[in-house]
Design a protein around this nucleic acid. Sequence first.
DNA 1: TTTTGTGCAAATTCTTTGCAACGGC
DNA 2: GCCGTTGCAAAGAATTTGCACAAAA
Lengths: 138, 138
Amino acid sequence: MLEPTIGKGLRATGRRLTRTRKAVLALLEDTHQPLSASEIYSQLQDRHVAIDLVTVYRTVNVLKELGLVMQLDLQGQSRYELKEGRKHHHHIQCRVCGEIVDLLLCPLKKLTRLIEEQTQFIVDDHTLEFAGFCPKCQ
Amino acid sequence: MLEPTIGKGLRATGRRLTRTRKAVLALLEDTHQPLSASEIYSQLQDRHVAIDLVTVYRTVNVLKELGLVMQLDLQGQSRYELKEGRKHHHHIQCRVCGEIVDLLLCPLKKLTRLIEEQTQFIVDDHTLEFAGFCPKCQ
DNA sequence: TTTTGTGCAAATTCTTTGCAACGGC
DNA sequence: GCCGTTGCAAAGAATTTGCACAAAA
C-alpha cells in the first residue's frame, strides 16, 4: 500500500492523487515487472479500469518525476517499474519470449569515478542491460 | 580506405558495392562518431550525396549484418559507428549537447559468466552506456 | 470554484515495407 | 540481362501535444 505516502508526494508538488494514478501504481505494485506503456494500458483494460493510453504515458512520467518509478529502455521500448525503495539494479531480457529477470548487482561504482576522472564528465546515470536466451528458449 | 575489403564482404554474400553504400561508409569513416540515421542522411546532404533516408536505414542494416558497423541505442534512438577492428567499448553521452565520448573499457567479462551461472540464461549481448554532463555543459 | 487531470483526435518522430525503376556485376 | 538496390509513397509503432470537458482539493 503505497497510497498514503504517494498522496503526500503528489500534493507537495501541487498534483493530485487520482483514480488513474492509483490504478497504474496498483498495477505496478502487483506485477512487479517492468511494463511498457501499452502493457500497462492493456493490463488495466483487463482489470476493467478505463484509461487512455495517453494518460498512461502522462502518468508514468509524473511517477518518474516523483521518483516513484524507474524508466528503462529495453530493445527500443521504454518500460517502467516501481522503485519502492529497491536497491539499484539491472536486468536481463530474453530475446525470444521477452522475459525480464532482475540482476541484483551493479559493478559500476568504482568505474563511474574512474570515468569522471578520465573524461571530466559528471556522470549522472548509466544503463546496463543484458540480453540473451532464457532457459526455456535456448 | 575500407572499400576493397568491403567490396569482398559484400560480394561474398551476393551483395553489391554501390554509390550509396560507399558514401555511408566514407561518412562513418570520416566522422568517427556514432551517428543516427537522420544525421547520416543530413550529413550526406551536406556532402551533396543524394540519398534517401530509407536507404540510410537499409544501408546501416546491411553494414551491421556484415559486421562492419555497430548499432547502439542511446536515449531512445539508434546510432551507428564503424567497427574497423576496434575493441569492444562503451560510451558516455552529454545530456545537454549530446556529445559522445568513447570509453575504452568494459568491466563485464567476469560478470557475464556469473550472470549465466546465476540465471541460466545464455548471455548474448549487453548495453552499457553512461550519461552525464560534459566539461563544457556543466 | 479553481486548477489539475483526462480523453479524444491528431501530430511527431523513428523506422519499416511495397513496388516500379535503376544500376552493379 | 539478371537480380540486388534505390527512391518514393505509404504504413506502422512508440510517444507527444492541443484542447474542451471532468474531477480533485
